[in-house]
């Protein structure tokens, strides 16, 4: 069972503002989903290695070369989708450190 404060801290870490009824329905859904994970708890996995990728990948590299692309040829392309920009920078409200 997820507590209110746990849900709040999850929303905080995911940077999603939850309002009123959201909290209730998300809590319900999360609880159901998390409960469905219980079946995994008792599975014996001590000698089983985690599987992050489905193939046995290893050592995929690129060479240390500079490549040109549309962004570094044209700063406007890089900033095209920015909601707020000025003089080549992307802007956010002033951050007080």
């Amino acid at each position: 069972m997820i507590s209110d404060s746990r849900l709040e801290s999850l929303a905080e870490s995911a940077k999603i503002e939850l309002i009123g009824k959201d909290k209730v329905s998300f809590k319900k859904d999360l609880d159901k989903l998390i409960k469905s994970f219980d079946i995994l708890k008792d599975v014996e996995t001590t000698d089983i290695k985690p599987m992050i990728n489905v193939h046995d990948y290893r050592n995929v590299f690129r060479d240390d070369k500079v490549e040109n692309n549309d962004y570094n040829k044209n700063q406007e392309v890089a900033l095209r989708n920015a909601p707020n920009k000025k003089e080549g920078f992307i802007l956010v409200p002033k951050i007080m450190e």
Binding site: N69, N72, A78, F89
Partner: peptide
């Protein structure tokens, strides 16, 4: 010469957002 995960130059300086991809 280039960044860790892409081919952008690591050179210092230059116009902002001009060495990105």
């Amino acid at each position: 010469k280039s960044k860790i995960f892409c081919g952008c130059s690591t050179e210092f300086g230059g116009r902002p957002n001009s060495k990105c991809c």
